[in-house]
Design a protein around this nucleic acid. Structure first.
Length: 472
DNA sequence: GCATGATCATGC
DNA sequence: GCATGATCATGC
C-alpha cells in the first residue's frame, strides 16, 4: 500500500497531518468513517488507522518508527479567554522492571518521545470525537532547558523504583515529566523489582500546565501578526472595527512569565533544577524581612499579605512576573511563617469547595486531589525574639503517599455531608485528621449555592498547621 | 467582581 | 494558647 507521506521523513508526515488543520477527521476522510467508527477504539487510534493508514502499536518504539517520531493527539478546551489544554499528555506505561536498567538517553521514554507530532483538537462535550476540530498540528522537540528538567524528573522516578518505592511515586515528585496513574481502573497494579509491594500502574506524562506553554507558542505567539502589522490596517480612517470574530484571540490566556534559569550554563556540574533553586536562597538565609527588602530593592505596602512571596520571587530573580518553571510544572509556592518556638500559626488553605461539583466527583479526579498532588515549594520564615521574621530555609515537598489515604476520608466525609445538606458538622482541625474544613470567603455573607438549593458560606479544605510542622 | 493566598480576631 | 470563624490584599 502506498502511503500519502514519506514514512521516514517527519516533515513529510507533518505536512500530510496538516490536512486536518481546522477540520475534523470526518471532514477529511468522509462520512464512511462514521459507520466504520463503531467499536474501533480510542480517538488517537482512529487517527492512526483511518487518517495515517498505519497500524497502532504499543511497542517501545515510536509510532512512526522510521521517522523516529511519536504521534500524540490531545484535547484542548475553550475557556473565556482562549484555548488551553484539557488534560495531561500521557506517554508510555512505565515498566518498573525494565526502565531502571537504562540511562535517560537509552530509556523507553526518550527512545520513544524525543520527537513528537502533536495534534491538538478542540474537545466539545456535545460532539462525537470524529467531529472534533484540529487546532494545532506541529512537530515538537523539548527546548534544551526543559529537557534538563525532564531528565532530572526521569532520574527521580527511576531512583524511586531502585529504592523499592515504586508504590510511593506521586505526580508531586517531579516538575514537567510526571508519572500519572494509568489503567483500566484505579486498581491496576504492577510488580516492582526491588520490593514485594505492588505499585500502581503509571505512565510518563506531561502536566497540563506544561502543554499550555506549547499551545501558547503555537497558537498565540507564532501565528498572530505583530502589532505593527495591525497598525497599518487600524490606522486607516474609514476602517470600522467589527465585533471580534470568535476564532481570533488577540491575547493569550496566560500571564507574563520569566524563567529562573535564563541559560543552561547556570547549572553547576551534576546539579538538579531543585538544587539550583535552593542554592539561590542560601545566601539569604538568616536575613530579616527588612534586610531582604532593602537588599533586593523591593517596594511595597507593609501590610501586603503577599510580601513574603514577593521577597521569594525577587530572590529567584523574577520580580514582576510569574515563575516560568513553576508555572509549567504547576508547582505551588507557599510562604510559611514559623514562630520562635517552631510552631506555625496558620493552616494552609486550598481552593474554595464548589459545593455543586464535589458531589459528582471521585477522589482521584477531585479538585483537592489535584492540588495535593502538586509539588510544593515552601519558603519558611521564622520569628526571632523581637518578632522579626528571618528567612529560615526553603524546601520542595510533596505529600507522603500514606497521608493521602487519610485525606481521602476527609474529602469523602465532606462530600457525603454536602450531599446530605449538612453544613454544620465538617471535620475540624481538632479532629486531627491532617486536614479540615473551614470558611473562606470575603466575609460571613459571602455565599454559594449548594446542591440542595440553599445558600451556604464559602468554605475550603485546609491542611492542619500541626500536620505541616513536622516537615519544616 | 471574585478567587486565591494569606492573615487576623475572638472566645474558650 | 489554640481552634475556629472571619476577613483582607492582590491580581486577573
Amino acid at each position: 500500500m502506498k502511503l500519502p507521506y514519506k514514512i521516514n521523513d517527519p516533515f513529510s508526515i507533518e505536512q500530510y497531518a496538516k490536512k486536518l488543520l481546522n477540520k475534523s477527521l470526518k471532514d477529511v476522510i468522509g462520512d464512511k468513517a462514521v459507520q466504520e467508527r463503531v467499536g474501533k477504539g480510542k480517538f488517537g487510534q482512529l487517527i492512526e488507522e483511518l487518517f495515517f493508514q498505519y497500524l497502532p502499536n504499543s511497542q517501545p518504539r515510536a509510532d512512526f518508527e522510521e521517522a523516529g517520531m511519536e504521534l500524540k493527539t490531545t484535547p484542548l478546551k475553550k475557556i473565556r479567554k482562549g484555548l488551553v489544554s484539557k488534560e495531561r499528555l500521557v506517554f508510555n506505561i512505565i515498566d518498573y522492571k525494565e526502565e531502571y536498567k537504562y540511562s535517560f538517553k537509552e530509556s523507553s521514554f526518550w527512545r520513544k518521545n524525543a520527537l513528537l507530532l502533536l495534534m491538538f483538537y478542540l474537545y466539545e462535550k456535545e460532539k462525537f470525537d470524529i467531529d472534533y476540530i484540529f487546532k494545532i498540528i506541529r512537530l515538537w522537540r523539548f527546548p534544551a532547558k526543559d529537557l534538563k528538567i525532564i531528565k532530572d524528573d526521569w532520574e527521580k522516578i527511576v531512583q524511586k523504583i531502585m529504592d523499592g518505592k515504586a508504590h510511593e511515586i506521586s505526580e508531586g515528585d517531579t516538575f514537567f515529566l510526571g508519572a500519572c496513574t494509568k489503567g483500566i481502573n484505579k486498581e491496576s497494579m504492577r510488580d516492582q523489582p526491588f520490593s514485594l509491594i505492588p505499585a500502581k500502574q503509571r505512565a510518563f506524562s506531561l502536566k497540563s500546565k506544561y502543554l499550555n506553554f506549547i499551545i501558547q507558542q503555537s497558537l498565540y505567539e507564532e501565528v498572530l501578526p505583530d502589532d505593527s502589522e495591525y497598525e497599518k490596517i487600524l490606522s486607516e480612517p474609514e476602517m470600522q472595527i467589527a465585533a471580534e470574530p470568535e476564532t481570533l484571540y488577540t491575547k493569550a490566556p496566560f500571564q507574563e512569565i520569566e524563567p529562573i534559569v535564563k541559560d543552561l550554563s547556570e547549572y553547576r556540574k551534576q546539579e538538579t533544577f531543585e538544587e539550583l533553586v535552593i542554592r539561590k536562597f542560601i545566601p539569604f538565609y538568616g536575613k530579616s524581612e527588612n534586610e531582604l527588602i532593602t537588599n533586593l530593592n523591593l517596594i511595597f505596602d507593609a501590610k501586603a499579605k503577599n510580601k513574603f512571596e514577593l521577597i521569594a520571587r525577587a530572590i529567584l530573580g523574577v520580580k514582576n512576573k510569574k515563575i516560568e518553571e513553576f508555572e509549567k510544572a504547576d508547582v505551588l509556592m507557599k510562604t510559611i511563617r514559623m514562630e520562635a518556638n517552631k510552631s506555625i500559626k496558620e493552616s494552609m488553605s486550598f481552593r474554595q469547595i464548589q459545593f455543586k461539583d464535589i458531589v459528582d466527583e471521585e477522589w482521584e479526579d477531585s479538585t483537592w486531589y489535584d492540588e495535593l498532588n502538586r509539588r510544593f515549594f515552601f519558603v519558611i520564615f521564622q520569628a526571632n525574639e523581637n518578632g522579626e521574621y528571618l528567612l529560615k530555609k526553603v524546601k520542595f515537598w510533596s505529600i507522603p503517599h500514606a497521608d493521602l489515604n487519610i485525606l481521602e476520608q476527609v474529602w469523602l466525609d465532606t462530600k457525603v455531608k454536602i450531599q446530605k445538606g449538612d453544613f454544620e458538622h465538617f471535620i475540624k482541625a481538632s479532629d486531627e485528621r491532617i486536614g479540615h474544613i473551614r470558611p473562606k470567603g470575603q466575609d460571613a455573607n459571602d455565599l454559594m449555592e449548594a446542591p440542595d438549593g440553599t445558600m451556604q458560606k464559602k468554605k475550603c479544605f485546609w491542611l492542619n498547621n500541626s500536620y505541616l510542622k513536622q516537615f519544616l
